[in-house]
Design a protein around this nucleic acid. Structure first.
Lengths: 194, 194
DNA sequence: CCCCTTCTTGAACAAATGTCCAAGATAACT
DNA sequence: AGTTATCTTGGACATTTGTTCAAGAAGGGG
């Protein structure tokens, strides 16, 4: 299950490249653009190989979905060297950083959400990732403001996520950068309020 | 082009039923669930009729998309009898009303946004609808707070839309009603701030 | 060298999908 | 009634798509 010999070095293993291809196609052309042949072409492998690693299309999509969830969690798990206040501030500001606030990533998010709406099993993966993110954010708030109860932290985290999701979504619709900055300030205000 | 005789009364004309079917399928099964045969079945008409009214699939989707844009505009065009303050408040609170904050509608929105991301011409329709909504909201704010400049109104409208979109999106992810209420209060705060 | 497991390929097939079309039904008007 | 335009049907066709499969390549250990 994990016996790959790291290949020839510069070439990532093909199983991983297939998932990359799915995400690339999904963010650019939506779910209708994700078919086994296009995935194979994009990944530079033969059609049969996709079905070799992933039994069927739903499994393929699921695997790709799980992968994005992991990368999202990095947002709320910052470096442990920083002070609690810094950690929280960093997490809140990073969502507007180039790593997350770019069309490719946002578009991907949107398609994943849409997918989750249409298929029960995708919804479960999505809900779990969301719950983990909310939990991580609540913990960061708790660390930065020790006086708050666990429920208060979760409440603030929920309010922040509303604004953050709004930022992500609305920035896709072409809203100005100024509004993004004001919204970030709003999340900080919610997080650090007395 | 408009010579229908209102049919037999209780049965809506078939062209309209076809669009209804598209939206129904889109919100429940995503774009992959929208195919000509499913649309025909859902609308209770023959396959050929769909292509009779809409030349091809993109035209069909476009027509359905345009229809939702019109219904969104109603949010920011309230009854003219109310006072400006009431109009604005009503618009801000209606987005959490049962007419808009239900899974069917939200899911539809999400799929439409995702579609807009994947296809240029859908993006244009979406952007135009968004612009009109933003404009309507800015006008409501201007009426309620005559002291504000046109740009200030648009700025506030943009900030409000961020939170509203966040509410819509996050409520799909299953966030609690309490957070929705707090978010609405936040939009009112933005709108009526001095 | 051979054997065995793992990986990789592309052809082949069945099902699904978009589009077209010939024919029939309905309605409107003279 | 007769005529014409509009609406409605479902079959047919070409293409696309998911999945399967037999065959081969690559590599590792004896």
């Amino acid at each position: 299950m994990d016996t790959k010999t790291a290949a020839s070095g510069e070439q990532v293993d093909r199983q991983s490249r297939i998932l990359d291809a799915v995400l690339e196609l999904l963010s650019h052309h939506g779910i209708s653009g994700v078919n086994m042949r296009a995935v194979a072409r994009e990944a530079g492998v033969a059609l049969g190989l996709v079905n070799y690693y992933y039994a069927d299309k739903p499994s393929l999509i699921r695997a790709a979905l799980n992968r994005t969830g992991e990368s999202d969690l990095r947002l709320v798990t910052p470096d442990p060297d920083a002070l609690p206040d810094e950690q929280l501030l960093q997490a809140l500001r990073q969502v507007a950083g180039p790593e997350f606030l770019n069309t490719q990533y946002l578009s991907l998010r949107l398609h994943l959400w849409a997918l989750a709406q249409a298929h029960e099993d995708f919804a479960l993966i999505n809900a779990e990732a969301f719950e983990q993110y909310l939990d991580g954010l609540a913990t960061l708030i708790g660390n930065a403001k020790p006086g708050l109860s666990r429920d208060d932290c979760r409440e603030r985290a929920a309010d922040i996520v509303v604004v953050q999701n709004g930022m992500w979504l609305t920035s896709l619709l072409g809203i100005g950068d100024a509004s993004i900055q004001r919204s970030i300030a709003r999340t900080e205000q919610i997080a650090f309020a007395d």
